[in-house]
Amino acid sequence: MPENKEQELENAENTADMPTDADNLEDAQTPAEAPVEGPEALDPLDAAKLEVSELKDKYLRLYADFENFRRRTAKEKLEMFSSANADMMKAMLPIVDDFERANQSFETSNNLEALKEGVDLIYSKLIKTLESKGLKPMSAKGEAFDAELHDSIAQFPAPTEDLKGKVVDEIEKGYYLNDKVIRFAKVVVGS
């Protein structure tokens, strides 16, 4: 027991010599004297190099993100076009079937009037299918010539004065797809 008492006394003396928190506050450096850590403590050249490396890293990451975005959108665009064509082809398949049946009936039937009626029905079905997909024919005959809608392939002397500068004849129909011209009408313009 006496040894324990001696150790306790020594420990008490040692702790008395240690500075307390109040002592630490007095001896602590002021904020202006405290050593600065981080980029400010570095040499300006080292700080600039560090900043350049950080900016370079950010740039490379941004560039990689942009490349991934570009590739992804290109892939999505291709998939969209291919699926749009698939929808159109599915809509056209019944008409192809009708044309195949019409060809078979041409070989076996001599009734031209019935065959013509069948072809007319297939044609009207084709036009309705195309219109349901947004296709509209352009009416050009008698209209004023418009270079944004018409492709003039010839000029013809106008039979009357009021047909000058207007479409006299339509050689090939023009078409709109969702109000955008996809084929210009080939026309003859009166001069």
Rank of each mutant, 00 (worst) to 15 (best):
N85P: 02
K116N: 11
K141E: 14
D179T: 03
L62P: 00
N103D: 13
D151G: 04
K116H: 06
E172R: 09
K116C: 03
L112T: 12
D162S: 14
K136E: 10
V96G: 02
Q155H: 15
N85R: 13
S83Y: 07
L126A: 14
D169M: 08
K125G: 07
K164C: 05
L121Q: 12
V52P: 00
I153M: 08
E51A: 08
K133L: 14
A102H: 11
L130K: 00
L130Y: 02
V52D: 10
Y59R: 09
K56D: 11
Y176M: 08
E117I: 09
K164A: 05
D57L: 15
N111R: 07
R71N: 15
D162V: 07
K125I: 01
L62R: 09
S139G: 03
D65C: 04
S109V: 06
D65I: 07
A102N: 09
K49A: 15
E79M: 12
Y176G: 01
N85G: 14
A64F: 05
Y59L: 12
D169A: 09
D151H: 13
R61E: 09
L121F: 06
Y123G: 00
E51T: 12
S109E: 08
F145Y: 15
F69V: 10
H150W: 04
A84I: 07
S53E: 14
P159T: 08
G134T: 03
E117D: 14
K133G: 05
I171R: 07
N110G: 14
P94L: 05
I127W: 04
D87I: 13
K133D: 03
M92E: 06
L126T: 13
F66I: 06
A48T: 11
K77E: 15
A84D: 13
N103Y: 10
N111F: 05
K166M: 03
D87G: 12
T160K: 08
G174D: 00
M89S: 12
L45W: 11
A64T: 15
K136F: 00
S124P: 01
L45Y: 13
D169G: 01
F106L: 13
R101P: 01
T160E: 09
F106R: 13
K136Y: 01
G165E: 03
K133T: 03
D146E: 04
L78D: 15
E170A: 05
G142V: 06
M89T: 15
S139T: 13
V119D: 00
N178M: 07
F145W: 02
K166I: 03
M138C: 01
S82N: 15
I122K: 00
K166V: 03
A140E: 03
R70M: 09
K58M: 10
A48Y: 11
A144H: 09
F156P: 00
F81Y: 11
L55E: 09
E117V: 10
I127G: 01
S83D: 10
R71Q: 15
A158G: 04
L112C: 02
N68W: 03
Y175L: 05
S124E: 13
I122H: 06
A144P: 10
L50P: 00
A158M: 06
A147Q: 06
S53L: 12
A140D: 04
K166Y: 05
K128W: 00
D43T: 09
M138H: 00
N178L: 08
T108A: 08
I171L: 04
D97K: 11
K166P: 03
T160N: 12
E76L: 14
A158N: 06
M88V: 14
K49L: 15
D120W: 05
Y175N: 02
E170Y: 01
